[in-house]
Amino acid sequence: MHELSLILNIIDIAQKEAIKANATAIEEIELDIGCLSTVEMDAFEFAWNIAIKGTMLESTIKKFNRIKGKAKCQHCGAEFSIQHLYDPCPACKHHVLNILQGKELSVKSLVVS
């Protein structure tokens, strides 16, 4: 359940930024969560609803950007989308890949007031 650790970090980041901006409320939070990151969305939602109680994020609208996995084959140079870290290159079937995107885990933006 590392999702809970991640959420506690998100709450900390968001509250610090809101205080820095002299805001009293966080209306929206936008999160980038790559499809290749180790986040299980059901576990994330479950932990989120518990963790935000009593924090500035309690009634915040949460938006996710699920960023699809993309890789470049180091053997033939092809760029393609991947669902799993073990997917082979569709062109040459090699497994030596550079992950270009899909591992993101970040707080993209907040709307505070």
Binding site: E17, N22, S109, V111
Partner: peptide, 20 residues
């Protein structure tokens, strides 16, 4: 003292695991 009670968008792009 200064308050910002208007809606403001804060662009962060902060890695969730930055502290770790």
């Amino acid at each position: 003292h200064e308050h910002s009670h208007s809606r403001t968008k804060v662009d962060l792009q902060q890695d969730i695991l930055l502290e770790n």
